[in-house]
Design a protein around this nucleic acid. Structure first.
Lengths: 344, 344
DNA sequence: GTTAGCACTCTGTCTGTTTGAGTGCTAATT
DNA sequence: AATTAGCACTCAAACAGACAGAGTGCTAAC
């Protein structure tokens, strides 16, 4: 479809525009060393590329900038994988070499690292509890009618719910219940908890507790709430460095959008579980992101999808670098997590 | 020091400037219905007020705006307490009437409410764990060499630490240790945990556990970390609505400053434990806040300081309204929390 | 097919002008 | 003695015109 020369010109134009955020004219292109033909020729080519919809003008006599279609083509066909800088590699290494106990902390640091290296905003979703296994469970009454229900997973995650405690349940009942639950549910993945509860625990409770009915109601309450995955952000203020976000109102709209966690959760969820996905401009379903691109990669533990890494930046984003980075980090993260939480 | 007329003029000037964010001239002031004298007279008074440092010009022939000294005087002497709007009162009421289990959630909602009512940014510090009492404690090994240490307080707060687990400690040791700790430390305020540990628990451990020395080392580890109070934010993007923050760079500096949690913690901590404090412009120790005012109020449980509510806005802030609101909310919060966590 | 040349377009900047809101000062008025 | 009217003056903001510069598209020559 496109001639080699058109490909070259398109590549140069997008590369340069990503660097400088300024429309590029035929003359500037012709001045480059890797260009042997004149600006007039380039003008003709640019006109053709514009006809095909890959580039556009900001006004009738301006230079050209890439269109969304242009970026799409660039990402799909022109991407030259770029080697990460040494010091960035080093940062990633040191992230994993620190003795980082908490999974949450590791994720949080990853978010910060991503934004630091890219100078864009990072968003990380997860880790999902769905396939993690219950390690221990506790019910602690803290006042009349109220108790804290604590679940601890094999990934070291602690999940907490405040729940109603029926008047009829006394300390002995609670203890018995907790013991039965721990006995029967330890090692069970979160996704199977409810099933297991029905199959095995109900019967035991009937025979061992005083107030069978209340206890059962109580338990139903415990396991009904579905906590949504946590969202971690890094470098939110990096958005303000971009020339396309010098207008405070645009910033405000975008901030308000990305702070709606449920929206972001859905957005990062929908891209499935493998590979790197790039959403350019209007490809994003969220209105306020129409001037942004979102690049996502997923990480997992032992083949089980755990969450999503994402970078949010202007459509004029350094795609090669970001894609390379996300690819590397998601794989490293998967490796480290699998090693840590899957082997034993 | 100031004549009644000067007081009146200063009050009008600041009130109007807070409303409109525009320099006020003698003619606009003279046009008001509560003003009986001419613009020339006002000009003279304005000149005097300027000489005294309460107001200033933006350029040689502009109207006047309040200086920081002017705001200070206004806050200290001219503040007419303002009645909150009915619908705002209603919002506060409904905040407390919801069946809000989690203390953290209540605080989070309070932050959102504050920013919603004021249209400024809210910051809430706390609640402090210092005087809350231990309700239950658990050690859960999750992999070789690592365990989760969970503390539950009487306010329903769950605190989690990931800790090294000595090889020598086996399940029986852990269970004995946990039982001893729960037995001896239940009901003890966090501030006394370490002392109590030394006084009572050490001896018991020596007689009841296999690997006394390792266990002790382990425990020392558990109780050494001091978690700092959590910081809750509400309405961060409200800053972008203010005309004084239309410049993206100013916004960036401010955002970067308020996202440094340790800084903010110190800032909100230092204002002591009672009453409402107003910091205007350069009175804030943080450079980036020199165009902002910070109003703080503290909340407590049963007389024990728990945390701080704060509103951050431009120096041109609606002081009367914000002060009234903070006063009300901090008292209500104190009342509700005391009732919920102190009575039993 | 490529390129030189040229007329044309649009933005951004600079300059000068005007308008309006404000001031300070002085002299007249109450 | 305090107040006010009047006036010269100042500055910012808005506007208009001129101009330079970077770009385009098109035509004709190479």
């Amino acid at each position: 479809m496109l001639t080699d020369r058109q490909l070259l010109i398109l590549q140069i134009l997008i590369d340069e525009y990503i660097q400088n955020a300024e429309p590029l004219g035929s003359r500037s292109i012709s001045k480059r060393q890797d260009i042997t033909f004149s600006s007039a020729t380039i003008r003709n080519e640019l006109a053709d590329l514009e006809d095909m919809g890959f580039i556009e003008k900001t006004h009738s006599s301006s230079g050209r900038i890439p269109s969304e279609k242009g970026y799409r083509f660039y990402v799909d066909n022109l991407l030259s994988p770029v080697q990460l800088q040494h010091h960035d590699m080093a940062k990633i290494q040191s992230l994993f070499h620190e003795k980082m106990y908490e999974l949450e902390l590791l994720i949080e640091h990853s978010a910060n690292l991503l934004s630091e290296i890219t100078n864009y905003t990072s968003i990380i979703l997860g880790p999902e509890m769905y396939e993690t296994k219950l390690k221990h469970l506790q019910i602690v009454p803290i006042s009349k009618g109220t108790a804290i229900f604590v679940l601890i997973t094999d990934t070291g995650h602690v999940e907490k719910y405040t729940v109603d405690l029926p008047d009829e349940m006394d300390a002995a009942d609670i203890e018995r219940t907790v013991n039965i639950l721990n006995d029967r549910l330890k090692g069970v993945p979160f996704s199977h908890l409810r099933l297991k509860l029905q199959q095995e625990v109900q019967g035991l409770l009937r025979t061992h507790t005083e107030n069978y009915k209340q206890t059962l109601d109580f338990l139903a309450q415990l396991f009904q709430t579905e906590k949504s995955d946590k969202v971690y952000y890094g470098g939110k203020t990096n958005i303000l460095n971009q020339p396309e976000f010098q207008d405070v109102n645009k910033v405000k709209d975008l901030y308000n959008a990305i702070e709606k966690q449920d929206l972001v959760q859905r957005l990062l969820h929908q891209d499935g579980t493998s590979g790197i996905k790039v959403k350019i401009g209007a490809e994003n379903t969220i209105q306020e992101m129409k001037n942004c691109s979102l690049i996502t990669a997923s990480y997992s533990i032992g083949g089980q999808h755990m969450g999503t890494l994402a970078i949010l930046g202007p459509t004029r984003m350094e795609y090669p670098r970001v894609i390379g980075l996300l690819d590397l980090l998601s794989k490293d993260l998967t490796k480290v997590l699998t090693q840590r939480y899957y082997s034993n």
